[in-house]
Amino acid sequence: MQNNATVNGMGMEDDDPVVSGSESESEEGEDVKLSEPSKTAVYNKDGLLDKLGDISWPENVEFQHKLSVDIDQEQEVDVNDDLTRELAFYTQALEGARQAFTKFQSVGLPFLRPSDYYAEMVKSDAHMEKVKGRLLAEKRKIEEAEERRKARENKKLAKEIQVQKQKERAKQKKEEIESVKNWRKQRKQSGFAGGDKDGDFSLAFEDGKAFERSSKKRPGVAPGDRSGGKTKQGGGKGGKGFDKKRKDRAYRDSKFGFGGKKGLKKQNTSETTNDFRAFNKSNFPKQKKQKV
């Protein structure tokens, strides 16, 4: 500190709050300036110009030696705006390179590196590999993010479609119920002309489709057996216990059903509702007789 102060030679009082932007000085690249120039600063113009004359090259040195280009800076660069600052440097470099290349061309000296000229580079191949890896990783990251975004949007869209479908389904159901009601009314009005045969059911619907249980006969599968008769075969193939099953047991299983939901088997279907064949009709008169 002492040393610096002497080199600095400013003699600034410590309590003097002339330093601006004290919040940001911890950050690298930010720097603090005095808000007003110090009065004691030395500025020996003659000495500077004298020294410049001492060290400078002769005036008529060719461009080939100097290789320096002066580029006009259009306006003051805002230092704290990284983007514009870097852009200003970039344009300066670009303009300089263009001017230099045109000069080279006018002189007629080779300046472009031929494609078959290989030589040591400033950065090693290993380092450039790292750079490449990083670029690729970044690219991949961007792509993945893009994909995720797309998936999210798709999901949203799918949800909407799903809602739409459900609405449609509900609507259809309503319509069907309505149509059934209509049909009932009509039937009432016409005095149950069609009787209770199944065929009429299906004809009455608007779309001509019959509402019925899938009546596909599955051979060897008990009604209501949801496994599709696979219990029998699977059972046969299964463990030891099933192997020992007797043949007639297997037959009976397939005939009367084994496994699956019991409830459905015992429910009435539209066919069996009015089917009284299974009832023992002889019971009724017997009872009457007994009563009498």
């Binding site: 113009k45 060290i55 290789l67 002066d70 580029i71 300066q92 300089g96 030589a119 040591e120 950065k123």
Partner: peptide
């Protein structure tokens, strides 16, 4: 990346010519 030892083109912004100390620094 560039060739190691190829001669650089030096570009200076025009405000190096504004005052003597910048001129000296530029040189």
């Amino acid at each position: 990346n560039h060739l190691k030892g190829s001669r650089p083109i030096l570009t200076f912004s025009s405000n190096f010519d504004k005052s003597p100390h910048w001129k000296l620094l530029k040189e």
